[in-house]
Design a protein around this nucleic acid. Structure first.
Lengths: 344, 344
DNA sequence: TTGAAAGCGCTAACAT
DNA sequence: ATGTTAGCGCTTTCAA
């Protein structure tokens, strides 16, 4: 049986309160007493019972992270980043998978009894929309990620989707591309990453004086590699002309790239390709994939920081904030400039 | 403030025991009573306090999963599989990252106070070795994964590394390859995946009457794509001849493949390539990568099952067991048979 | 600087 | 079929 405060107290010849004080780094303890207690703790290999502690204190030292799927690289890398941040604060992370955009499961997680084990939640929905905003009115600290819901009643950490997408498009325009296909649009979507990124694309074209050709929009249902490949195949089959592809995320871009190569098209000579997300894999594909780093580490760091602030400061609540991360264009082989191509 | 058993009991006009019985699905309750209690539960939005429950019962409903890094696809996909299995049993998973083979951190995790929040641990070390076996003598249910430690004092779920690696090699031999380079060997390693997989390679060659040429062993320190790329570059630079590459994991193989393609070699026409692990990405690379599925889902399912059995059955302890998953060769484009190649 | 005692919300043994 | 009661191990007043 594991040792308890009582065992330690008995061995050290003090009360349990004194042991508790030592364990919790209370300042006013006689050095000799502290020493005796520490000795007993070591000897008995005492470890505080966290269930008892949290029952009493109401804190668990655990934060929840709800995301679609760990097998999607972006979310695995996000989880990695969140866990590193949490570890710095001596917090541990409980991950919940909600499936790829399963709205019901997302809503279910928000009121899951499992969250009782948690001091707060970082929540990255993919299926919920602004209509579900009310459901974010929960009784625990909650930080929202992603671009499904804006203006909700909670802190929101997100990226500059429109601006970043505009920058990606401009990156292609600067390289001489004029007919830029988009892979990954969502039919009729008004909210969410796809809609925002298409909007950025539209703005960049507009500023460049290019009108948007709807036949250059490749629609998909999900954002897996397979979907990117299929949409690309359809577009090739349709016969529409294009000199660049903008994958609304890296996975789509990688899928599209593979189809282009199968079709005998050279990247970037015949078609330039850019993605979005900056997942690790883009640094190793053939060719390496230009992409947008939306500031994933910053998002993770901000989310953990804001959540811990909310958890700690229940005293003086402040209004929900929105935090936007800095993005950057990662210039890689898949968009080498026209000049260099022509020189070949 | 959240409602407690007492609140519900008061509202329903019964004792807390009755409420507890209803909550825990105890059978012998009058239907009318149950109904009244359920109504009160709904009305008060009662949720059991899990800290109190686990303090009392000694169970948390949480299992730990300690693995190197979520940003390594194999482990992300393993975590995904473990979480799905756990969810089936209404368990939640607490993930701890130990870093890529950091022995000290692995040892630290084994005695982390955070494990107090956990009923047991699934542990996948990368840095510890058989010398550290004693450290697996812990006071909580523990299931070991991986191939760093064999014959330890705990249940061990692992794959048939030698056999699977032999099968991968034979797959290449059957396709007419005779000079098979290995990417990912570890200098002087006697334990661990690399050593076992090299052993399988050796056995396959031996059976085929081919002597192992040490210059075909590409050594690396870690198993990232970068390492595979570097080792492949070195081997190309060394001038040694080969007609196939066996990457000891998929990531290495993908890195190697990229270097081969940069060097103008065609896959599989000039060099056939096979990997190991069966990560998702191998289905989408160009060409798609032949690989070994070591039975990841089966490993996850077994690990969760065995752990829950150990957690439940503290009554009649049985000796530690080893569980071996079934593997299979995934035949993809990177190893299309010589016959078809010659026909081109 | 230290101790005594109450009680967080629940389960389980025992009673009825 | 339901109620009573005693803790699980800890933190937190309140005292001394």
């Amino acid at each position: 049986m594991a040792a308890t405060l009582h065992d330690v107290a008995a061995m050290a010849g003090v009360s349990i309160k004194t042991v508790s004080n030592v364990v919790n780094d209370y300042q006013h303890i006689r050095a000799s007493t502290r020493e005796r207690v520490l000795k007993a703790i070591t000897e008995l290999n005492y470890k505080p019972n966290l269930s008892a502690r949290s029952l009493r204190s109401g804190r668990t030292g655990v934060i929840g992270l709800a995301l679609p799927e760990l097998s999607l690289s972006y979310f695995a890398e996000l989880a990695d980043a969140v866990m590193r941040e949490a570890a710095k604060r001596d917090l541990v992370v409980l991950i919940e998978q909600t499936g790829g955009g399963d709205r019901d499961k997302e809503i279910e997680v928000l009121s899951s009894p499992r969250l009782q084990l948690t001091d707060g939640l970082i929540f990255s929905p993919l299926g919920m929309s602004t209509d579900d905003m009310e459901l974010l009115n929960v009784s625990y600290p909650l930080v929202l990620l992603g671009e499904r819901i804006f203006g909700g009643p909670v802190d929101h950490v997100t990226m500059k989707n429109v601006e970043a997408s505009k920058a990606a498009t401009q990156h292609l325009l600067e390289r001489g591309c004029r007919r830029i296909a988009v892979i990954g649009a969502h039919e009729g979507e008004l909210v969410g990453s796809a809609a925002l990124r298409v909007e950025g694309y539209r703005e960049a074209l507009e500023e460049a004086g290019i009108s948007l050709d709807p036949s250059l929009l490749g629609f998909v249902v999900e954002w897996h590699r397979m979907d990117g490949a299929q949409a690309m195949r359809q577009m090739l089959a349709s016969g529409v002309q294009f000199d660049a592809v903008f994958g609304l995320n890296d996975t789509l871009a990688l899928g599209a790239m593979r189809v282009l190569q199968e079709a005998g098209l050279r990247i970037p000579e015949d078609v330039a390709v850019i993605g979005f997300d900056g997942i690790d894999e883009t640094r190793y594909s053939l060719p390496t994939l230009s992409t947008i780093d939306p500031g994933r580490d910053e998002i993770a760091a901000t989310a953990v920081r804001v959540l811990t602030e909310r958890i700690a400061g229940s005293s003086e609540p402040f209004a929900p904030c929105q935090y936007l991360s800095k993005f950057s264009v990662m210039d890689r082989e898949s968009t080498v400039a026209r000049e260099r191509q022509d020189a070949r």
